[in-house]
Simulated assay, not measured.
Amino acid sequence: MNAVSAPAVLPSFTATPELADALQHALVDVTSLSLVTKQIHWNVVGPNFRDIHLGLDEVVTIARDASDTIAERMRAVNAVPDGRPEAVAGSTLPTAPADLTIVAEAVTYEVAAINAVVTTLRDIHKVVDETDAMSSGIIEDITLRLEQQAWFLSSQNYTA
């Protein structure tokens, strides 16, 4: 396949290699989050199934929106996003259960998966913030939304 030649006019800002790598890392993890969350969504069973099932779809929506936002930001700053399966396979998320999963275990897994993404986002924040404040705002927004979902879900497993 032939490579596309560079446009006549480049964006006014071009990502540094460090910024591109940081955004790619975020892209991989949020894309993976959408996939593993759907896996849990399809296979969760037990008490309060419906609420968790629907709550997991909220996480999927956030993760899918985040992956699109990050990838489009990468293109806007002349970086090339990679969302191919082999790239996403390199995510930092824990492996999702392959079988039916009881609600409490599904919640525990999902919170761990969200926290893995949030850790990535917090780890890359400094380099993103130092090189592109606009991209930093995107990372901050995604982090806030995911942390809120982790709180919502973890409250399901709370016991007095």
Rank of each mutant, 00 (worst) to 15 (best):
N48I: 15
D129R: 13
V60G: 12
A76F: 06
T159Q: 09
D123I: 09
P81Y: 09
D141C: 07
I52S: 04
D51L: 12
S12Y: 11
A112G: 01
M134Q: 13
T143A: 12
S154K: 02
L10K: 12
S67I: 03
S154H: 02
T61H: 08
N2P: 15
V107Y: 00
T31L: 14
A104T: 02
I62G: 02
G83P: 02
D65M: 05
P94Y: 05
E147Q: 04
E140K: 12
A87F: 11
N157V: 01
D82G: 08
P11E: 13
V60T: 15
E110F: 01
S12H: 12
P85G: 07
A3Y: 13
L54Y: 10
V127D: 07
V36D: 04
E140C: 08
D65A: 06
L19K: 03
D21M: 13
N43L: 08
D51E: 15
I138H: 13
A98W: 03
L33W: 05
A98T: 07
E140Y: 10
H41D: 06
A116D: 00
D99E: 14
S154C: 04
A3L: 14
T131C: 13
I124P: 05
I70A: 04
H25V: 11
D29I: 06
V77G: 03
A112Y: 01
D141M: 13
S12L: 14
V28Q: 11
G55F: 00
V118S: 03
V45T: 11
V30I: 12
V118D: 02
L121F: 04
S136L: 11
P94H: 07
E147G: 03
I40Y: 01
A63P: 01
M74A: 05
A71H: 07
G55H: 02
L54R: 11
G46P: 11
P94S: 11
V77N: 04
A160R: 15
D68V: 03
I114E: 00
D21S: 15
V118G: 05
S135A: 12
S5R: 14
T101V: 11
E58H: 10
Y158D: 07
I40M: 04
V111P: 00
H41M: 02
Q149P: 02
P47D: 14
L93F: 05
V4W: 13
A98E: 13
A76R: 05
E86K: 12
T143E: 03
A112K: 01
M74F: 10
V80P: 03
P85I: 03
A22D: 02
A71M: 07
A160P: 09
W42S: 04
V36C: 12
A6M: 14
E18G: 08
D123H: 08
T37E: 02
L27N: 12
P94D: 07
P7Y: 11
A87Q: 08
A66G: 02
A112I: 00
V36S: 09
A76G: 10
A133W: 04
A150L: 01
V9T: 14
V127K: 10
N43I: 03
E72G: 06
S5G: 09
G90C: 10
D29N: 15
Q148C: 00
M74T: 04
A66K: 02
E86F: 08
S32I: 10
S67W: 09
S12T: 14
D132Y: 05
S154M: 01
N2D: 15
M134A: 15
H53I: 07
F13E: 10
A15Y: 10
